[in-house]
Computed example of a mutant assay.
Amino acid sequence: MTTTRRTFLTAVGCTGLLGLGVAQTNGQSEDDLARDSFTLMSGTADATEVHVTTASESGPTALVVGGMHGNENAGYLAAEKIAQWNIERGTLVTIPRANAEAVAADARTASGESDLNRQFPSGSERETELARAIWGVVEEYDPDVVIDLHESIGIYDGDLVGGVGQVIFTSWDESASDDAAAAAQYLNRNYVSRDDYAFSVGAFSSPSNEPSGLFSHKAARDAGADAFLVEVTSKDTEIGKRVQWHTKLVQQLVEEELLTTGGDGNDGDEDGEDDESGGDDEDGGNGDEGDDGSDEQNEPPVAQIQSDAGGRSIERGETVTLDASASEDGDGEIVEYAWDTDGDGAFETDGESTELAPTECGEFRVTLRVTDDAGSVATDNVVISVV
């Protein structure tokens, strides 16, 4: 990708989005980098954060989206890591948990809602308020590159029946197809060592074919972006490996646009030694999981909540145990676990696990915050339903 459709976006404020339920939440400036964030659908169950990183050097804009489906954990965990990247030029916009309510429930869709990734029909209005708010980000920042992160329980074999994992689906642009092929080759050479797990490249379906209404399709057809829908497989693959695949693929797809060779976001492991030395074994574990930057850049941790409720509703007074032991930090260790068990934004308890015994019916959002030994933070959420 050597050409772009637009110039550097000089203002990263969200004035144009205020009509879509956006509330500015914070911003910070560094010498050569500005970071801002704002909330879509503020004050609703769909409230979700948008992060904007802007470099001082002019360049194109990339938009990375995760959590379109709430039970595809690797996508939103990777997007949260990507939101913390340092870039050398242009603008990086991320929506890690696009369908925040579904993410909190660890479900494909929010309760009572249809599939969010079918609500973006090409050439016409979005179908829900959340879809309109998300598309408003596209309209505001006019991204040159759009990457939507997903995962599948199977591996793609040419049809959509058995699963679509290990594929980069692309818009019909030659530049997008070439970049996807190069990214797949890079991942296969450096981060895939198991037979049948190699990444391949596929083209988006035509507008008349199913599935329709996909966000990435609309980004390509209505916004003219080089668009990618990345699918990794959860088949016999641990969460850390899936997150690594996503972050490495995004790195490759935006490197020429936003990153510098050998700098932030590029770990310089072109010789392929990283995958083999990392010990990628049959269950998908890898010692360097989640590495998205140079050796000088700390890798944020991955927060992961496991519950003995197993996704079922619990009864009033029943005690449910929430466990954070599946959380991990690829380049260090987690030194702090904090829990917000009543959804008020304050973290009341600490420790690798906690218990909840609600005495009232309803839905209770629990947030885990983990901090690594370099001070980087990650969060995860679950919703406990009490009947």
Rank of each mutant, 00 (worst) to 15 (best):
M1E: 09
T3I: 11
T7R: 10
F8E: 10
L9I: 13
A11F: 13
T15M: 05
G16H: 00
L17Y: 01
N26S: 14
E30Q: 14
E30H: 13
A34I: 14
R35G: 11
D36Y: 12
T39F: 10
L40G: 00
T44Q: 09
T48V: 14
V50C: 09
H51F: 13
T53Y: 12
T54A: 15
A55S: 04
S56V: 02
L63A: 03
L63G: 04
V65Q: 12
V65S: 05
G67P: 08
A74I: 15
A78L: 07
K81H: 07
Q84Y: 00
R89Y: 01
G90D: 02
P96A: 09
A100S: 14
V103L: 02
D106G: 07
D106L: 10
D106A: 15
A107S: 15
E113Y: 07
E113F: 04
N117W: 06
S122D: 10
G123T: 12
S124K: 06
T128A: 01
A131D: 13
W135K: 09
Y141G: 04
D144R: 08
I147L: 09
H150T: 12
E151G: 15
S152Y: 13
D157P: 05
G158T: 06
V164Y: 14
Q166W: 03
E174N: 10
E174G: 03
E174R: 09
S175M: 08
S177G: 04
S177A: 11
A180R: 11
A181T: 11
A181W: 04
A183C: 01
A183V: 00
A184F: 03
A184I: 06
N190L: 01
S193C: 04
D195A: 12
Y197P: 03
S200M: 07
V201G: 06
A203R: 13
S206L: 11
F215K: 02
S216E: 01
K218D: 06
K218S: 10
K218G: 05
A219T: 05
A219S: 09
A220D: 06
G224M: 01
A225F: 05
T233R: 12
E238W: 13
R242G: 14
W245R: 08
T247P: 13
Q252D: 00
L253R: 00
V254A: 01
T261I: 11
G265L: 01
N266V: 11
D269F: 00
D269M: 12
D274H: 02
E276T: 15
G284R: 10
G284E: 13
E289W: 11
G290P: 03
E296H: 07
Q297I: 07
Q297S: 10
N298L: 12
A303L: 08
A303I: 03
Q304T: 11
I305A: 02
I305T: 04
Q306M: 05
A309P: 02
S313A: 13
R316D: 08
T321S: 00
T321P: 03
L322A: 00
L322N: 04
A326Q: 14
G330A: 02
A338T: 03
T341E: 04
T341G: 00
G345K: 04
G345P: 07
A346P: 01
F347M: 02
E352A: 08
T354E: 09
T354N: 08
A357K: 03
G362P: 03
E363Q: 10
R365V: 14
D372K: 09
S376V: 00
V377E: 02
V377R: 07
T379A: 01
V383D: 06
V387M: 12
